[in-house]
Amino acid sequence: MKIVSGYVAAFWLELVFLVTLLVVIARARKGLKIPEVYKVAGLDHLDEAIGRATEMGRPVHFSPGIGYLDNAQTLAAFAILSYAAKACARYDTPIIVTNRYSVIYPITEGIVRQAYLEVGKPESFVPDNVRFIAEDQFAYASGVTGIMNRERPAANLLIGAFWAESLIFAEVGNSVGSIQISGTANTAQIPFFVAACDYCLIGEELFAASAYLSKDPVLMGNLIAEDWGKMVMIAFILIGAILQTFGNSSFTKLLAK
């Protein structure tokens, strides 16, 4: 049994990363000190956005994106939905969740229901506010923009995997006067969100959200492992660039194995 050609370096790098991740999680579980995490403006302003909606007496809209359940960005969005739903439940502010997939729909409904339960207001949960729109991308986009126009949310949270509909949502959200917090790891859509939203979680910040919001040491441990991984990558880039500049491609070839 041998490693597939082209995957050798990736396999060993990922293995080392996974071991580091498990070690860091184990250390965090033992209660060892976790370093501070830098401020993520988009996440820090979540409460402010929900507070604004409460003051204005208007709802909050949350879209977990159009990624399927096998997309890590969708999973990351669930953590933020849970946090936002709890905050909305505390302030008695309606939260409208729009879903593209019928499979994701019961999951987000469960998350919101649980959030109301956890803050002790299960009776305030309105099942009709968690909605399935359509599995087709642009039918979903039309449905969501319709809801935005009719229900005029004061806060628009667009967090997950987005594609062409990103700017449609952000511009319609802007036109109805929403404060907008977005987040995606889809590189093609980040410029749209940065230009059209008030705050944007860029790439990995989306994945860091569950740790950042919960302050759970185990999840915070994840961020440290990710930072180690990035530092190794920076070192690789430097080594590769220097060697390649002097005409030595051995390192590049090693990584391409």
């Binding site: 597939v4 050609s5 082209g6 995957y7 062409a164 889809n186 590189t187 093609a188 410029p191």
Partner: peptide
């Protein structure tokens, strides 16, 4: 293309170009 080494060319919409 990575495991089988088959050359890959891409035609993409403008929005996808930076990525």
């Amino acid at each position: 293309s990575t495991p089988y080494g088959i050359p890959l060319a891409v035609s993409t919409i403008s929005v996808e170009v930076p990525g």
